[in-house]
Design a protein around this nucleic acid. Structure first.
Lengths: 256, 256
DNA sequence: AGATTCTGTTTTATTATTCGGAACATTCAT
DNA sequence: ATGAATGTTCCGAATAATAAAACAGAATCT
């Protein structure tokens, strides 16, 4: 019995007004600090519709209006933080990501699976690369492969059937059998490596993070340019550091 | 001319369906991992209404359904991150909060003003206290007073008239003149202190964070128990540390 | 200064959609 | 097997969202 994941692919039943609201919201998130007419241009709705939805959102506090321009408000932060603190381990992972990044001086992330996608939950890195909340195909990430390696064959098969194995780069694993072999190796080694499977010039290493009850919480990962991420670094140094941090999270959860 | 802040206090015009959706969403955020009937109990809506709204949100991916229980999804993280990265300084402040917390071994936060309220945007602290996204009255926080001290008299007066000066503890400043004097002192010193004005047994220190263009970005703050937060610690040691970190953010933005 | 062309806002009748209640289906526990 | 929960579907009635056009105000241009 494979888990019920992935998009439900329901028909377009339900509340269509709510769909409109979120369509406007997503457009606004893409183009922040935008005016009503500009937002109307970017959506398929009329000006009065956008106007009414927006003013409602402003009234609710979810959208901020400043000098006629509209922005996503911090009230969403309160809601999203609910998802980020649902499991205590997520919070523990936050600190580990930071320490890991500081100690290695590399970019570090903590990734969780939701709806058959990898979601960046915590990150340490430069000012510019803001990936938190972004969603990526599991099979193209070291952390994603780590998560896949924890699932049983049926679930992986369902994932392949539902999400597919799209080629993100030339190196992305697109063959189910190759994936199965890769996952087997990850289970053996205890860590996953990504060789430019998600982005050219980028390698990464990831390990699973478990709760004290041995439930999979997510994956801890470090990534960087191929020039610096040599085989030795990737296969010897980093896996141990990552495992240490993953272990710390477990211990923190067990003994506070 | 005071700025147009605070809640617009519009009438209940607009899209009432959207209001319902967010009412359900907020209830769900309060009581995560809840069932449809339970959610119906906690709201003023009928079961079919909650059902329709929820399934729509699940279909959109903003709510996750697992074994009949509903959770806030990580898709909100993508939206809220838009607010958190709107200004580059917000991202820079994240690292400063972490370093500050690590170095002082205290709880540290970065706070921003929105709609006349103080919003916790970044925090370093123990596993349990999750304050990110939470909103607090500006006049009851050291960081809030720092922000108020940067405003002109008209804006402060408008804030007092709109938000009021509610007493949160016995020490909260509730008198406008006392507040004015306090803000004057903060401007002189360059930092603000909170003496159990927000919570009994808690003291804190805060400094303003500026952009290279001298715009106020937010406030950096450290807080802890009165027992440990002696006058010397609060007035000598911490202000300098905080100022250093605030300066680093500025420099990062200018040359980083 | 006057005219033009953008905005944001309001109004209206029409239409489409949400709503609530009840019926149905399903699961679970006893 | 029975009963009491739950989740789900259906439907007519009532409401609420919609589009379009008209209005107001600001900004830009001549």
């Amino acid at each position: 019995m494979s888990r019920d994941r992935g998009r439900g692919k329901r028909d377009d039943a339900g509340v269509s007004t709510t769909r409109k609201t979120f369509a406007i919201l997503e457009t606004l998130a893409d183009a922040d600090g935008v005016t009503i007419t500009e937002l109307t241009r970017r959506t398929e709705f009329t000006k009065s519709t956008v106007y009414r939805h927006l003013t409602t959102l402003v009234d609710l506090g979810y959208v901020i209006e400043r000098d006629g321009a509209y922005d996503i408000g911090f009230r969403f932060l309160e809601i999203s933080e609910q998802a980020r603190t649902r499991r205590r381990g997520y919070t523990a992972a936050k600190r580990s990501v930071f320490e890991l990044g500081k100690e290695t001086d590399e970019r570090a992330v903590f990734i969780v699976e939701e709806e058959y996608e990898g979601v960046y939950v915590h990150r340490y890195g430069s000012l510019s690369d803001t990936m938190i909340g972004k969603r990526r195909p599991l099979h193209s990430l070291a952390s994603g492969k780590v998560i896949l390696s924890e699932w049983d064959d049926d679930t992986v098969a369902d994932f392949v059937a539902t999400a597919g194995l799209d080629a993100i780069t030339d190196n992305t694993i697109t063959d189910p059998d190759t994936l199965a072999a890769e996952l087997e190796q990850i289970r053996d080694r205890g860590y996953a490596v990504n060789n430019e499977e998600h982005m050219d010039g980028l390698r990464s290493v990831a390990v699973p993070v478990y709760t004290p009850a041995d439930d999979l919480l997510g994956a801890l990962s470090v990534f960087g340019p191929t020039s610096r991420f040599t085989d030795e670094y990737v296969h010897d140094d980093l896996p141990n550091r990552l495992r240490d941090k993953a272990g710390e999270i477990r211990v923190t959860l067990a003994y506070g």
